[in-house]
């Protein structure tokens, strides 16, 4: 019965969340932004992050999994630390612009679209229109946006990243890249199959200490800034069990079966 320590959100992130609570008519509608919040907090959206997002927004974890597999821009654990997104839609692809950018990335990092370097530092993927079609090819590297990104500019940029990471192009060309696996586990790893009360996402309602008046609130109403005392305990239910056997991992699209065991 080893308890898995789950990740927790930092107090800044929680404060941001609490600022948002007043902005939205219900907690579920905060999900898009909360997913961004956990993405920024943990660097990507992994199982823990999905569970925390489900907790915060009062929805089922399966629902969050459905979201994360639907929207392609969320960063997942399989993506590289440096995630190259190359626009492959017609306007960029005309005249071989996209092909050239992809060829350069391949020549430097040995990556085809959909692959990541074995050390997880770099990944490359084709994406659809990035809305800057007059300056092809358009590439996004995580939060950075580049226009007309081919030729020496792209090479120099990759070299800069390689140097910053202390890597060389030759190292990556010699290594075998891995195919990115963006599927989600059928159930998140922290699922507890023994105690029924812990199955499914924890549901918060407004009586939950989570939304109760915090220490710092002047008017005594819930949902103000300041971290409520309840948050000093971990958000996710610490539960028994190890990681899900990878062979049980299913396709994201079918992953909606989780969470309804009650």
């Amino acid at each position: 019965m080893a308890k898995m320590p789950a990740k927790t959100l930092s107090s800044e992130a929680l404060r941001q969340f609490h600022d948002w609570v007043d902005e939205y008519p219900n907690k579920r509608s905060m999900l898009m932004m909360v997913l961004r919040l956990v993405e920024e907090e943990f660097g990507c959206i992994d199982d823990d992050a999905m569970e925390i997002a489900a907790d915060l927004c009062g929805v089922n974890v399966a629902h969050v999994q459905g979201m994360v597999t639907f929207y392609t821009h969320f960063k997942r654990p399989a993506h590289g630390k440096h995630r190259f997104m190359v626009c492959a839609t017609l306007m960029c692809a005309l005249d071989g612009n996209t092909d050239q950018a992809l060829a350069q990335i391949r020549a430097k990092l040995g990556l085809k679209p959909g692959e990541a370097t074995p050390d997880g530092l770099f990944s490359c993927e084709k994406v659809e229109c990035l809305a800057d079609c007059d300056k092809p090819p358009v590439i996004q590297k995580d939060d950075e946006h580049f226009c007309s990104m081919k030729g020496p500019a792209l090479d120099a940029y990759i070299d800069k990243l390689l140097t910053a990471e202390g890597k060389t192009s030759e190292q990556y060309l010699a290594a075998t890249p891995v195919t990115m696996d963006l599927r989600v586990a059928v159930l998140p790893v922290h699922y507890n199959f023994e105690g029924e009360q812990n199955v499914g996402a924890r549901r918060f309602d407004d009586k939950d200490p989570y939304f109760a008046p915090g220490e710092g609130s002047e008017n005594g109403s819930a949902r103000t800034t300041g971290v409520p005392p309840a948050l000093k305990t971990p958000l996710t239910a610490p539960v028994a069990g190890g990681a899900l056997n990878p062979s049980n991992a299913g396709h994201g699209a079918n992953g909606t079966s989780g969470g309804q065991h009650g």
């Binding site: 017609l90 692809a93 071989g96 996209t98 092909d99 050239q100 992809l102 060829a103 350069q104 391949r106």
Partner: peptide, 12 residues
């Protein structure tokens, strides 16, 4: 494909 044979398979 600017001198990188094979890229066409994965290109556009």
């Amino acid at each position: 494909t600017h001198g990188a044979p094979g890229v066409l398979d994965v290109g556009m």
